[in-house]
Amino acid sequence: MTTLDMSTTPLREVNVTLQEAAKSQSNSAFEITNPRGSHAVAVGLDGPVSVTIKGSTGYYCAGMNKSATIRVEGSTGPGVAENMMSGEVVIEGDASQYAGATGHGGLLNIKGNASSRCGISMKGIDIVVHGNIGHMSAFMAQKGNLVVLGDAGDALGDSLYEARLFVRGSVKSLGADCIEKEMRPEHLEILKDLLAKAGADAKPEEFKRYGSARKLYNFNIDHADEY
């Protein structure tokens, strides 16, 4: 275990160290102390390393992650794990807006709440939020799964494509073209697997599934009000 103290180590050095370790497929472990809300911590990792961040981070923590496992023992600022490709990002606290934005793969596991626009334009990532999510979450979400153990805010899944949304609590309102859908056995399987991976204490049967009504997929004048 290597410790990088951000009160004495510049961001550039922290990221270069992590990026080089990741690239060398070293499977090594790092601990980052005193992040103090810094931006762009542990971004662009491309390989199997394990990073534990002791404290809260700023914008874009774990951005574009590939293969690495990043655990934040604190809260994260906007855009955590944005455009993640693979690997796992775990946040012990809360995540700010845009968590997992445009993510292509991997698992983003948020133990606390996520604020607005969680999973915006997601493209294949799996996101599990143990608490609540804010408004406009899964806006234009294309692919992947968003699992919420708590409640969802306004306009969930607005202009949704093929991402699957599972919410255990209440949904304040659904966005345009997002509807509740039947939970079929294959969905229960997906959910069971994701809940297990995220270490979430919940049963698949407690969730409702939301998805795209697919009415906005091709322009139709009768739906013009929803554009």
């Binding site: 103090r36 809300g37 810094s38 809260s56 914008y59 809260s75 600022g77």
Partner: peptide, 13 residues
């Protein structure tokens, strides 16, 4: 002791 507001968490560190 207080209520604090900031644009970013960094300001609270």
């Amino acid at each position: 002791d207080y209520v604090a507001f900031a644009s970013e968490y960094r300001a609270f560190a």
